[in-house]
Design a protein around this nucleic acid. Sequence first.
RNA 1: CGGGGCGUAGCGCAGCCCGGUUAGCGCACCUGGUUUGGGACCAGGGGGUCGCAGGUUCGAAUCCUGCCGCCCCGACCA
Length: 488
Amino acid sequence: MAKEITSREEDYSQWYIDIVKKAGLAENSAVRGCMVIKPYGFAIWEKMQAQLDKRFKETGHVNAYFPLFIPKSFLSKEAAHVDGFAKECAVVTHHRLMNDPNGTGVIVDPAAKLEEELIVRPTSETIIWNTYKDWIKSYRDLPLLINQWANVVRWEMRTRLFLRTAEFLWQEGHTAHATKQEAIDEAKQMQDVYAEFAETYMAMPVIKGLKSDSERFAGAEDTYTIEAMMQDGKALQAGTSHFLGQNFAKAFDVKFQNQNQKEEYVWATSWGVSTRLMGALIMTHSDDEGLVLPPKLAPIQVVIIPIPKANGVITEVVENIQAELKAKGISTKYDKDKKKQPGFKFAEYEMLGVPVRLAIGKRDLANGTVEVARRDTKEKFNLPLEGISDAIEKLLEEIQDNLFQKAINHRAENTTTVDTWDEFQEVLEKKGGFLSAHWDGTEETEEKIKEITKATIRCIPLDQPEEEGKCVFSGNPSKKRVIFAKAY
RNA sequence: CGGGGCGUAGCGCAGCCCGGUUAGCGCACCUGGUUUGGGACCAGGGGGUCGCAGGUUCGAAUCCUGCCGCCCCGACCA
């Protein structure tokens, strides 16, 4: 493993890439814009999945799976939806290859042209709503609460590992409801689920809000979002939950009979989070020494390193510690590798973001102690072997809390309330971060601000109190502050 | 799609301008030994269609032409 990571100060973007590569999370593949998620990165993703999946099921959802391919005609049934996705679709036109008659290799067999092209799903609303049409007849079939874990493809012009890749992994929930209110409640509920997961598991504070018209999902009435602040002050949309109104029901003719024997279109939501959360996790906590993982998502929570090398006595002590920790549900790794020196291992596990490191040598055996190092603060101290597992359990909780608190503080320090246009530009330029400002609610103003400053409205916060004010740009009256920021 | 950069061993690079022995270095890998409380050292060893295809030449990693790919920055997006 290479030793050097570009510092955040020197080049934040390169720092991010270095972390992803050197911590073995992912790498670029032979396919443009598509990444290989490596075992360590995937292990983190699996921990995220497990927690999210549990929460989806606790809120009454079930998993299913829909096809990767969508007939081209489906996509165009909802006007706003096709507008939003048409420009980034991969299209399947043929189903067979043949030997190249003029040389070596294979070519697409022209005789194998598909009658209707297939789109590789950029999202599954259309294929799912086409299916729901057959599943929903009565109010008794509602609500329909389904989630799928899948890959999707969006042919992005420019990609970045985890943050934006041409193919990415995600989950997409698609629900159908009898009433508007129920669908809105569902969309908000899932936003809450995402926020709770982000904060308690990823230790990443998020702002719950509503997207402005221009940032809304293609085909949605309202998009509920969770927005996080990265260490460079830029915003990252970490998850979205859409109230789709009756748009897809109308597009796919999905009606049900209510209790009064009247036919109605159903109300819909969709919601998703993706492997982008990996990027969010990295950019929220990591430092110039490597990845920093919150204990709740770390594949290895405690690494134990023998000093100078494993022997029978040390191994016996370590195995006891491991057994105690395992009983508490704490994952450990005992690195007995004799070829690598302790110093190398220290650096290596720091790179991997393992929250707690224990070192045990002769000195410790004599004193009945262990050397404990925490990844988040880089502090080292000795703890008695007696009761070590209780101490580590507490320490892991403390690290989890500390990371969250640090992230909250960082966000607070980089959130500025601004009231004038000069102030807006100056703060954005010199300090960055989130700007809480009044906005007149028009798309024109938002667009102009974006043109001039590159900052967009990240969200209209839900918990923001109403407050009379004047739009920071137009001076027109405004009732609420919104969050502006430059975004990933 | 615009701008920039890069394709040479698993990884990171030098060599190319100015063509000329067996294409080199660091890390990693293999063997042996000494080490080991913050990235060890010594000795020996294995590994290359120099991105692809043409061309120039006695001779091409190096010069010319075309192609392909990747990365970074911007416009578009989770």
